[in-house]
Amino acid sequence: MKERKWISKTDGIVLGVLVLFAAGFLLWRAVAAQPGMRAVVTVDGEAVLQIDLQSAEDAQSYTLQNGVRLIAENHTVRFAASDCPDGICVETGALQKVGESAACVPNRTVVTVVGGEPRDVDVIAY
């Protein structure tokens, strides 16, 4: 019986489209991305915390209700500790540019770096 081809023209088109789209997007992000202003932390889809990255020089530690710990320093933010089995969130490392994000899926927590206006308060009381 004749086996299906190794690779066909259609495959080429599929690959081409994928690679073009993906590479283009990544390139755009790498070039056009601004250093982030703030990091938005969401748990279960709700924003629970916003960290001002602009003013984050010395280490600032944040602990969420679900036990996840974040550290902001040198205008970056990262997962510092979490009780999830894989620890991928912590492995992701420091986030700095607009659009970069890290997630701890077992804890339903996502940290995304966003741009926007600089916030001129040191903290928000709520």
Binding site: R4, K5, W6, I7, S8, T10, D11, V14
Partner: peptide, 9 residues
Amino acid sequence: RLGFVGIGV
């Protein structure tokens, strides 16, 4: 029309 590479991808 797809080859193995296409299906794999």
